[in-house]
Design a protein around this nucleic acid. Sequence first.
DNA 1: TTTATTGCAAAACCTTTGCATGTAT
DNA 2: ATACATGCAAAGGTTTTGCAATAAA
Lengths: 136, 136
Amino acid sequence: MSSEKLKNTGLKITSARLAIFRIFENAPDKHLSAYDIQDLLKEEDIDIALATVYRVLGQFEEADLIQRHDFDDEKALYELHDGKQHDHMVCERCGNVTDFFDGEIEKRREDLLASHGFTLSGHRLVLYGVCSSCAN
Amino acid sequence: MSSEKLKNTGLKITSARLAIFRIFENAPDKHLSAYDIQDLLKEEDIDIALATVYRVLGQFEEADLIQRHDFDDEKALYELHDGKQHDHMVCERCGNVTDFFDGEIEKRREDLLASHGFTLSGHRLVLYGVCSSCAN
DNA sequence: TTTATTGCAAAACCTTTGCATGTAT
DNA sequence: ATACATGCAAAGGTTTTGCAATAAA
């Protein structure tokens, strides 16, 4: 249940936080910007100031409920942090983001980072290409 | 020589373009922001408006002289486009960028993109971790 | 009632753009 | 002489912040 996870963060259970968290639960595997979230809520006649959306997103990220990604030079995208690690494939044309998991590249990635003195934090790997819709 | 490559772009050879291109040639493997470039030039008592730096960077990128990267939510970084393909390792704490090349992950990347209907464009792959300086 | 949260407006920040002036060809 | 580059100031877009009003504990 939504409020359970929220309570564990120590944050107060407010309607804004519940509404925003519900958006993520209803859109798993989606990558949403602060504007996307505000728009989705507006469709339900829920009006939340953008400043609040940003603040709540920051708090959720701090609490490891969601992950923030800066894939391109546009808006930051957020997604539910579900524990299952996965990486991302980003279309350089339209910005479309596709999740994937690959054990082999995963292992290689760990070796590479380690051999350069990097330690793992999170598991982020991003591949850039052009998606099929944009390729024609 | 600098002016050779510049001439091939069809752009006029101006002092601003020469100065900016020289910065890149003198700092291979470095990833510089527009501000970095302006600062480096200021140290040589060369004053170029930020708007010009941005415009020139855009033109250089268009001409494939340099590459633009948006690794995080901060400033865009530019580096010389030397032909040798390589990927990047980014420290999530300090933003430090390290180049690397790995044939195995390279091949795996191509397979992965293809199997998801993505086509290659450029060869961008980014690993995120924490560098040794930030790890302590 | 005490403390945290929200909304609003304004600011911060990077990046782009309009326009008049200056420079390369 | 013509076309393109530059500087300046202003605007654009996303994200953050100050502060008074409001809601959660």
